[in-house]
């Protein structure tokens, strides 16, 4: 197989997770997929910089993240306006969040500052180590650890407040929660 084909194959293998990362950061399928598309094109143009055998997933995540922040700087506060953005999200795509429980969680995630949100996603969902997450975000290991801790605390606070106005644990979260203890 040529190096070119191998590059493409490794990129394809990382795409489902890259999309999940984009979607977790942004919360909208159309915008997330546009960002993934920009990332693919950037990565393709820079493929000579990629060293085969190193971590393709981390490389792509870094490009996506840099692309997102450079777009955010260009658009000003538009993306960071989490309240308005979530309302818009639900109005357009109510089905994409599955259960009500996950919709609550999505809303909570959207309330985090962007640096905390990306830190907890990279470590808690994408499967990166703290060290890898620090490299992707271009910051110190201690910074990532404290962002993840603050994200956890903040999510707990938000979800607790929501829970008090709610009906308590529901049948959707109960099985998910108990599964987490089995694995």
């Amino acid at each position: 197989m040529s190096e070119n084909q191998e590059f493409k194959r490794e990129m394809l293998a990382a795409l489902p997770s890259l999309r999940a990362f984009a979607m977790s950061l942004i919360g909208r399928h159309d915008r997330a997929d546009d960002l993934v598309q920009d990332t693919i094109m950037k990565a393709w143009a820079k493929q000579d910089h990629f060293e085969m055998g190193t971590n393709m997933k981390a490389w792509l995540f870094t490009i996506l993240r840099n692309e997102l922040y450079s777009q955010m700087r260009k658009r000003g506060r538009e993306i960071q306006d989490s309240d308005g953005h979530f309302t818009e999200t639900l109005a357009h795509h109510p089905e994409q969040y599955g259960s009500l429980d996950l919709q609550d969680f999505r809303r909570a995630l959207d309330q985090l500052p962007p640096d905390q949100r990306e830190a907890i996603i990279l470590v808690g969902a994408s499967g990166f180590s703290y060290e890898e997450a620090a490299t992707i975000c271009g910051c110190a290991l201690g910074t990532i650890k404290s962002r993840v801790n603050r994200a956890r605390q903040r999510l707990q606070e938000i979800l607790q407040i929501q829970g008090e106005n709610d009906y308590g644990p529901d049948e959707t979260s109960a099985p998910i929660t108990s599964r987490a203890f089995v694995s």
Binding site: L12, L15, P16, S17, R19, A20, F21, M23, S24, A32, D33, V36, Q37, I40, Y97, G98, D101, L102, F105, R106, L109, I120, I121, G124, A125, S126, R152, L155, Q156, L159, S173, I176, T177, R179, A180, F181
Partner: peptide, 23 residues
């Protein structure tokens, strides 16, 4: 543990969609 499980569920719900044709 609840937060970790929900975050993973949200992430996996997208990851398991596979790769859209446009890509």
């Amino acid at each position: 543990a609840q937060i970790a499980a929900k975050l993973k569920a949200l992430y996996l719900s997208v990851q398991e969609e596979g790769i859209p044709a446009r890509f």
